[in-house]
Design a protein around this nucleic acid. Structure first.
Lengths: 383, 383
DNA sequence: AAAATTATCGGAAAAGGTTTCGGAGATCAA
DNA sequence: TTGATCTCCGAAACCTTTTCCGATAATTTT
């Protein structure tokens, strides 16, 4: 590639320095043309057309081309037209890299999620992408795969890439937040969503997990359930903590004793298959299960059916995360909807606000997105 | 921000040009110090630390710092250590934008998908991200939202951003392929996956939809089904076309007449709820359904159960796309697994190959990823 | 006719990092 | 003392675009 570009330069000066006499002249000229064309074609592949190419071709300076494209009044209408024509012909596309270096703006925001392959996270990303797109920003996606080391490397990468801001949902294994603290200290625009970091003062968008769990639990109580089990997420994750707190609050508010044997750490479908039979084998088995996510809830339903329990007649089930799964189970799951798309929209909007007004002096705020209990078939009808 | 940076320059030359006499001197010096510190602090926020800052602080040139960081033999160990120490202290991160402009390499590949919020596509993205990451590339995601106009704009954006390659799955509404043809003519590294473009010579990764559908249909036949319905995708999409062809081939191979009333365009869960009752009301209702995706299959199962058909005793169901949904339905769905992650891996690997060897002269190839019939509960056991 | 204005364009600098070329100084042998 | 060699480092080029500051010629005003 490089040699060919050099070659081009020397080839361009040929017309002046080259001369042939006699009968060979015509033949050589023909060879030349073919050769030259071939090289030009080759260059097109390696080297995207720049403003300089346009300028050289038109015999004007790069600055003139730039101004012509910006419709600057200093440029004559004739020149503008020439530039526009050649730009269309050569399909010139402005070099965003050069623009970024010049303007110190990349128009990129980055997103760190644990896994894309989760309906909730892909919904959030979808919401982010939507808002970013309409505001002229591009989105760079990074997966931590729930690994702290990966998350650390990603933050370095994001700084290197000079993204203008970052949206983060924490990995499960992250217990040291120094990498994010450094960003925060530099006033790097940053918004946490869903799995947020409590120790860092920053904008956050969270699901109202407490109210979500409380409402769901109260709904179960109102449908007559009294021994409600909770399949909980790890408690070092805020969402796990808040959901459990909401669950307990609902019980206490309604004068139901909290029974620790009914609260089990269980947040995957496999764990559900293991844990649920144990719960049902208790002396006083539960008559309802509040699961911390959709898959776990679906697993619980299936496990119950395998144990010949009727859902919801004998045992009700409620899950978090309203995704595709909830609609297709039998019976369809009653779930706490988290409005992933909306979370993404909100988080992106907050980030853009920070990017646009870095000196606003506004205190970091935490936006709480209301949950919604979507009642389907795994809970009994009210009264 | 800008004014402050300018201000800094003028402030820096103060020590030489500034002189005060008499009693004012001390007071002014104090004021100055405070002023200066304040500005420096301010700059830290706006301006990321560059190689120049390190150089200035150490009293060496930027090139020395660069070489020290690259462990160049020309730099003394003492200088190297000094540089490393200050780099860690000031948390210098190389400016990827400047590097890209200089090296003409962005280390970015772009992905265009119709929607992220589809298990299949997010799996593919996950596979792409994995391969890209281990090869030092970052991934930029774009959603066409099944809109041609969006897809067109995205290709422009990708060219502007100087991504080194692009992975594409076509939008449903795209019928003009000029934007991709332009890229292909420039030899811009490009790999289509899943929803590929037949008219363009380019690397492709496709699911073996024909064999997938044929194998699934044959499996149904071997379990004793004879009237097999097909819920099909639109036929202008290759996947829809191939799956239907595979389905028909299996029937013909086994001497079963193709009945057009059993082939219905239906590729969403809502349509399944509408279409299935109609099929079952036929004079000769089907004893099996081959659905074009997972959700449609799940919808068919639910619709059948509502009509009091036993699945799979009376009607078998097979779906495409092996996602989360398949595992949680009751009974769990027998599906044709498409190995989304693997498709992503393969497509990304092919793209990187093209990026690394642009002049290999290798003809575009089409990689076919085998499907796999994952037998679960919605089909009867084999003989 | 001289002066001022306008129209149109070019040159250079700047953004940040890498690389190449070469220069300055020290050391050592002839 | 001269020349050669080695160590260490600086200056400048390069990538692309935009903007500021001139520069030239043509036109208008006085």
């Amino acid at each position: 590639m490089y040699t060919l570009l050099n070659y081009r330069k020397s080839t361009q000066s040929f017309p002046q320095s080259f001369a042939l006499g006699g009968s060979d002249q015509k033949k050589m000229a023909v060879n030349f043309k073919i050769h030259y064309l071939y090289i030009l074609e080759y260059i097109n592949m390696a080297h995207a057309v720049t403003i300089k190419d346009i300028a050289k071709e038109l015999g004007v300076s790069p600055s003139t081309v730039s101004r012509a494209l910006k419709d600057h009044p200093d440029i004559s209408p004739a020149t503008k037209q020439q530039v526009r024509d050649l730009v269309n012909k050569l399909k010139y596309k402005p070099n965003a890299i050069a623009l970024s270096l010049r303007s110190q703006k990349t128009n990129v925001i980055s997103v760190i999620v644990p896994q894309i392959v989760h309906h909730f996270f892909s919904s959030v990303i979808s919401g982010i992408e939507e808002v970013a797109q309409t505001n002229g920003y591009n989105v760079m996606i990074f997966q931590s795969n729930e690994k702290y080391e990966r998350e650390l490397a990603i933050t370095q990468e994001i700084e290197s890439n000079r993204a203008e801001g970052v949206l983060v949902s924490l990995s499960k294994t992250t217990k040291n937040f120094q990498h994010f603290r450094e960003l925060a200290e530099k006033d790097f625009p940053m918004v946490f969503f869903d799995r947020v970091c409590e120790e860092i003062e920053s904008d956050k968008v969270v699901v109202d997990d407490f109210m979500g769990a409380m409402n769901a639990t109260e709904y179960l109580i109102r449908t007559g359930c009294r021994r409600i089990a909770h399949l909980a997420a790890p408690q070092h994750l805020l969402i796990g903590y808040h959901r459990k707190r909401g669950y307990i609050s609902a019980l206490e508010k309604n004068g139901i004793e909290v029974d620790d044997t009914l609260i089990v750490k269980c947040d995957t479908i496999e764990e559900a298959y293991e844990v649920v039979p144990g719960l049902m084998a208790l002396e006083q088995p539960p008559d309802a299960i509040l699961a911390v996510n959709e898959l776990t809830a679906a697993g619980a339903v299936n496990a119950l059916k395998k144990l010949n329990y009727k859902v919801p007649a004998q045992v009700s089930v409620v899950g978090f995360t309203d995704g595709l799964v909830s609609t297709v189970t039998d019976p369809p799951l009653t779930t706490v909807s988290q409005h992933g798309f909306q979370i993404g929209e909100k988080a992106a909007a907050m980030l853009l606000e920070r990017i646009r007004h870095p000196d606003s002096g506004k205190k970091p705020s935490t936006e709480v997105i209301k949950t919604e209990l979507v009642v389907r078939g795994t809970t009994r009808p009210l009264g």
